[in-house]
Amino acid sequence: MKASALRAPGSTGEPLAAPVAAGAARGLSVERVTMRFGGLVALGDVSLDVAPGEIVAVIGPNGAGKSTLFNVITGIYRPTQGRVLIGDLDVTGRPAHAIASLGVARTFQSSRLFTGISVLDNVILGMHALSPPSVLQALLFPRRSRNELRQAAAQAGRILQSVGGHLYDQRYRLAEELAQADRRRLEIARALAGEPKFLLLDEPTAGMDDHDTDVLIQDLLRIRRDRPDLAIVVVEHDMRLVAALPDRVAVLEYGSKIAEASFEEIRRDPRVQEAYLGSDSVDD
């Protein structure tokens, strides 16, 4: 993993849009969340606000609780304490599928694709969050159901064309046959298919080489242009991506948030440097 490199590349990318002023009413808020597993405190009193259109990076050494944070937000785990809000709605403890249909989409650190079905079908499944299918319609109005599926397929095709790489050409391959970088892209495409308001990316560059990472950065910039209201939270180790994209960076260490600021400030923060320098050996 290229975790230890905390140097920014030559440029920090294009000028970043100013964060929308505390639009908490429409944003995603994690309020003082604590998550314990037995005696282990995976997250301790962590808060994070994400406004629409914002890109926030969450960095930190492995085991710092970044994925746990995602799992709490998306309802895979129920936090021991604290709340998760979408807009003004308290979604703490709601089932994962309900949170997904409120517009929170995610990818996984170890990409979790639907194996045994095609790449295209994976993207179609991403649309469940948007509109669940009806059993009665499937049984009684098969033509309508088929049309719905066909339209979904066409839409999924367009989404595949919009992400980098050659996913569209591989749309009828089994998802498990894809190369590593394509799996990552497919997961993002699947997440986008549900037209989310919040997109959580868990180490999207894991397993990507430099070239793929550059393509991914371009993809994410384009996504941001196309969907100005979409907020993106990204857990990342690759500092090029962290330097290029986010409006804000939050740093987690041992389950606590130790800093939150712009990338430039974070880069100079001695606590952050220490957390990173001490982490070289712990990699999962």
Binding site: A105, R112, T115, G116, L125, H128, V135, A138, L139, P142
Partner: peptide, 28 residues
């Protein structure tokens, strides 16, 4: 046939492959 060629059949295939991923795309 009708269930298989609808998004219902697809959802079943999804939870066959990965329940957690299925939940996070909104499948109950």
């Amino acid at each position: 046939g009708r269930l298989h060629h609808s998004r219902i059949g697809l959802a079943w295939n999804a939870l066959r492959a990965d329940e957690i991923a299925a939940r996070s795309v909104g499948i109950n």
